[in-house]
Amino acid sequence: MFLANGVTAPLIDAEESRVKNTLDETLMQQIRGGDHQAFATLVGRHMEALHGFAQRLLGNPADADDIVQETFLRVWHKAEKWRPKSAKVSTWLHSIVHNLCIDFHRRDKGETVNIADVELIEPHLPDDSRQQEEVAVQVKAALQQIPESQRRAIILCHYQGMSNREAAQALGISVSALESLMARGRRKLRNILQTQVADLLGEL
């Protein structure tokens, strides 16, 4: 899309393959210089994970689309703010999503959709699938009931696969504070789900 006209196909392939194998840190240096191909690679590499993070924080894929778009546009406009040795690029991107989601919540306070109220679209699921769907809805609702700080910590470590240090860095807290948030969050989830899911799956 951003390549100059007249470049032959093998050259394009070689260029794409070079950029695809480039480290995130090198991509960021190239993005600082206005390299669109490097930016496209960074977007392709991190979009799905960031979208998942935003969606789990906000509970809505359409809002997550907006947050992810805004995140990458900030990266493009403010690439010079990224410091090579301060954090991994993925951690830095997660921090931007995290901050944008906090802003979004502040703007949108009181207008959140209660996920427990969302009806299942598929009316004729087999019994097993229906049960799984019901459990998923209960867990999703339970995640929305725990405090936001605890939810963020659980999402980063459990769903985003971040190490404790990376997650703590993304949230701007210490590793011990992160552990404490996750432990409290998981305990609350267990308490909420104990009664709701026990009916569906037996003892938790």
Binding site: H36, E48, P61, D65, Q69, L73
Partner: peptide
């Protein structure tokens, strides 16, 4: 239980929109 929660993939046009 936490793993049972699935999420939607980003919309197909999101990448093009960002670029």
């Amino acid at each position: 239980l936490l793993d049972s929660v699935q999420i939607s993939q980003p919309s197909t046009k999101l990448r093009q929109r960002i670029l």
